[in-house]
Every structure is written in structure tokens, then in C-alpha cells.
Computed example of a mutant assay.
Amino acid sequence: MDPVRIAVVGMGKIARDQHLPAIAGDSGFSLAATVSPHDPGVAGVPHHKSLDALLAEGPPVDAVALCTPPQVRYELAAGALKRGVHVFLEKPPGATLAEVAALEARAERVGASLFAGWHSRFAAGVAPARAWLSDRTVKQVSIIWREDVRVWHPGQAWIWEPGGLGVFDPGINALSIATHILPRPFFLKAATLMLPANRAAPIAADLAFCDTAGAPIHMDLDWRQTGPQSWDIIVETDAGTLKLSRGGAVLTLPSGTTHSEDREYAGLYARFSTLIRTGRSDVDTDPLRLVADAFLRGKREQVEAFEE
């Protein structure tokens, strides 16, 4: 079977750090083109300044990976799907739930695959954590996701604009894991969002969730942490404590700790390949729904201005 000819649209940090190496390492894909109005692309690979130009002028592509900010992703995805091109949506899959639903319906109509890629779900410890929790009773959950925005999102003004999610851009990674591993659905009870005086999106948040059996789930998000970063999920159960750390790469169970290398994006592209081969889509919006609920129900508090 010939490799899927894929174009990467949006050549920012996530595309260069993760998507390009993952594509290069997967024999099921070949990098056919890149698209960016500002970045010059990759040596030896055709480059266009817009997706419309690529689709009109070639080279031909079977799929696109959209690595742009979410606020502009709907039009790009809709244009690709209109031509029957498979679409990989970097997280979050869109700026609103309604636009993602519209894309899912369009993909089904045209027979193309649409993939909402939650990369943290492919961290090494996530699948075994899900399996271990499947027959346990969860008593309480603590999620601590604290990092330094200057390190991970330097100069990315879009992330502070409406639709950019602010601290929920990394926080949604934690929610993508939690919604995947916890055995029961959960929902928001209360939230406080801390917004810098000069920004439209929060820099920190404190959230209280509850699962359908009443177990409390507390989430602490902060983009102001310097030094060691914290990406931890701790689940207290009737059989002891489970901890996922380093964003899901390290799993600690009562029986011991396992460490594994980062293979998140390799897992994403393997999944995308399977979806294309089998004619299916995978568009889970549960993490984005919880973030939307936080903006819907959360109390706002103004904090000091944030400057790069």
C-alpha cells in the first residue's frame, strides 16, 4: 500500500518539534508539502503560503495535518474535506464545539477521515492506567498541571485571544487523559479562572469536578510555574493510589513504577493511518466540552498583567 501523501499546515513549534519527526518515522506517510504564510518550509519539500494554493496547484495530497491556531482551523478543515482530503486536527480540535460537530458531519458526508488528535492519550502510561482503573472504585482525583508559559509557548499571542484557551491549552491535555482513563464520566461543579489584566484568556484556574458516583476531582492549572514543571494525575482508589506523572510518561501503581520514552506523536500517526485505511473518523470532544463548561460556569478573577 502506497504511503499517505500528507501536508503539514502551520509550521510553528508543534509542527517542527513533533509532527515532522513523527511523519518521517512512519512508513505509512510521506511528507508531500508544507503550508505557511510566514515559515519557508522544509528543504526539498514543496511549500505554499496557503492551503487553497496547495489544493489548487498541487502537488496532490491525500491528507493534511492542521497545526494552526484553533481560531482559523475550521475554514482550513472544511476546505480540505470538501475535496475529500483526510484531516488531522491538532488539539484542541477547534475554537468551538459547534464547528467541530459541523466538520464531523461534513467528513461523514464526503467519506473522508477526521481525527481529533489528543496527543497526551498516547503517552506510555495512559493505556495501562486506563486498564488498571477499569475495575476499581475511584474515591478522589487530583490533577496538577503547572508549567512555564514562557518556555512552552514563547511569543504565541494567539493563545491569549478568545478561542486560544490560555492555560487550558496545556490543561486540556490533562483532561484528555482524565476523560480517557477514569471509569465514570465527570462534570464541572465550580471553577475560578484567573485572567491577567491585559489578556483575554486565563493564566491559571482552579476547578472542582465530580464524577457520576460523587467522587471529587480537583484540578489545579497554572502557567506561572518556573523551575521543575508539574504534569501529574493522582487517583485514589479502593485498591490504592495510581499516579501518572510527566504528562503520562511515568505510571506509578501500588506494585511499582514504570518509565517509558515519549512516543505520543508516533501513536497519533499510527492511529490516523488506521482511520484512513478503515474509512473511519475519531472526533472525541469530551475534553473540549469540559473546557467550554469552565468558561461557561467559571468565576473570573483579575490578576496582574502578563508580559513576555
Rank of each mutant, 00 (worst) to 15 (best):
D220G: 02
G227P: 08
A208I: 12
G227E: 06
G240R: 12
N198P: 03
C210W: 04
R224K: 10
M219W: 00
D206W: 05
A208K: 12
R246F: 00
D211T: 10
I234N: 07
R199D: 08
G214R: 01
L221T: 06
G247A: 04
I217S: 07
D220W: 05
G227M: 06
S255K: 09
T252N: 06
A249K: 04
L253F: 08
T258D: 08
C210S: 14
S260N: 15
R246T: 02
W231L: 11
I234C: 07
Q225T: 11
T257D: 14
A208D: 14
L253H: 04
G240E: 14
R224D: 11
R199Y: 01
T252P: 00
D238V: 05
A239N: 10
T252S: 13
K243L: 01
A215K: 02
A213E: 15
D206S: 13
P228K: 00
I233M: 05
A200V: 02
T212E: 07
D211M: 07
L207Q: 04
T241A: 03
A200D: 13
S230M: 05
T258K: 15
V250R: 02
T257G: 14
T237G: 03
L242E: 10
W231S: 08
K243Q: 03
I203K: 09
E236C: 04
A201Y: 04
S255A: 14
T257R: 14
G248S: 00
D211H: 13
P202S: 09
L207F: 05
I234E: 12
V250L: 06
I234S: 10
L244V: 00
H218F: 09
G247S: 09
Q225H: 10
D238F: 00
A204R: 11
S245R: 01
T226Y: 01
D232N: 06
Q229M: 13
T258F: 14
H218N: 12
T241I: 09
Q229Y: 12
C210Y: 10
P228W: 01
R246L: 02
D211F: 09
R224I: 03
F209N: 06
T241N: 07
W231N: 10
S255P: 03
G256T: 13
W231Y: 13
A215T: 11
R224E: 08
L242V: 08
H259D: 15
A215E: 09
S255Q: 14
L221Q: 04
S255H: 05
G240L: 13
I217H: 06
R246C: 00
R224P: 05
T257H: 11
A215S: 11
G240N: 11
T212F: 01
T237I: 02
A239S: 13
P254V: 10
N198W: 00
E236I: 03
I217T: 10
L244F: 06
H218P: 02
S260M: 15
D206Q: 12
L207C: 09
G214S: 06
F209P: 04
W231K: 12
E261Y: 15
K243E: 08
T237K: 02
S245P: 02
T257Q: 15
P202H: 13
G248D: 02
T241Y: 01
R224M: 09
I234P: 00
T226V: 09
D206M: 10
S260L: 15
T252A: 11
L253Q: 14
T258V: 14
I217C: 12
